[in-house]
Design a protein around this nucleic acid. Sequence first.
RNA 1: CGGGGCGUCGUAUAUCGGUAGUACGCUUGCUUUGGGAGCAAGAUGGCCCAGUUCGAUUCUGGGCGCCCCGACCA
Length: 418
Amino acid sequence: MRQSQLFTKTRREAPKDEVSKNAQLLIRAGYINKEMAGVYDFLPLGLRTLEKIIGIIREEMNKIGGQEILLSTLQDSKPWEASGRWSDENVDVWFKTELKSGGQLGLAPTHEEPLTNLMRDHISSYRDLPCYAYQFQTKFRNELRSKSGIMRSREFIMKDLYSFSKSEEEFREFYEAAAEAYLKVFARVGLGEVTYRTFASGGSFSKFSDEFQTVSDAGEDVIYVHEHRRLAVNKEVYKDDVLADLGMQKSDLKEMKAIEVGNIFPLGTRFSDVLGLTYKDENGEQKPVIMGSYGIGPGRLMGTIVETLADDKGIVWPEEVAPFRVHVVEINNKNDDVRKEAQELYNELSQAGVEVLWDDRDARAGEKFADSDLMGIPLRVVVSEKTLAAGKFECVERATGKTQQLSTSELVHHVTHV
RNA sequence: CGGGGCGUCGUAUAUCGGUAGUACGCUUGCUUUGGGAGCAAGAUGGCCCAGUUCGAUUCUGGGCGCCCCGACCA
């Protein structure tokens, strides 16, 4: 698309009320808008990136048998009362409201209860299992203190998957498949090198769970990394007996700050028991369904990518999550030849299926380059009097600064065959 | 929830108990065109409510909002 049509503008300075790198850069580059504390809007560039991240997660969830659904945000209190999670003493992040006709409602902070409840209508036999359902859905959590930009907000999109299995073995098999899928997601969004499957507490659900932690100074968690095994242990379970169980020595572990980008939990029969989700096995015996839950916050993941990969000039997107693949930057567009050449290049790339942002604004080179660096599109292609004279475009990789002179056909080949 | 800080054009900042300035952005014109240009002319601001005062953006109280540290984080 033409950058002159993009309604967002870049800013030279970050708003003073944002301290976190992710929010500062995403706001400056026009990806997000802050609505209020802990509540952010996604603007055209930000939505494109968010959708890319969601697309990657969706592909990986589908590969392991996930079926996509969309549950409601508004929640009836009953299933939550059954699980004991309606009361504010047990769950302190509820946003609650009421119907005009009377009766309390809640804005869902998670979806174990409604989905377990719903599954009672669909699961009754061993033939109905296993079953895996997931969604990308907006959660509301009334955090006492939201912080760190889009990393911990009060309204956010979460991918939550729930597994329903016949037995502990069947559950474990899927649990491991989900863990593998998670690692693929983090690798695809460019965080593979710095993200570790991390042994952690299970909170109120179970004894243990697995987190996926991305090493970053902006992180809220402290983990102990076993680099050789590509595993880590959360500080909350960093104890002698746990380490012995995992076969780890303290001397092999390195303490690091990290961002929790995903978390998977064995739920056992915690919810199926209280909500009565059972099935009949081959012998006609009634048994509770074994469950698990699996979460990733695409917005938090987006923030983590910015925190982890940005440099002093701005955002650096990995190809799979960038809002556009190529940033065509024309310089001195009062020159008709430059304008024409840029238009032709834009058409060629677009026809080849390449997503292009074309900076067709009447602005000077310095401003355009600075904006381009800030926005972080992977490949910048400069069109100017210089490149016209040379007969080739100047192509600069955002991440590395590597520069190549390419003709139109070489460029099309370069971005469509990598 | 405990503690600390802050609220001035769109953004970032300065000043002051006596008509609020600068930079960037914006509007108009001319020049300029490979790393956030120059000249000229313009528009735009004191979070809200009270109190003190001849006079409050400034002082006091309350409200609302925002940030940071801690606690919490299914």
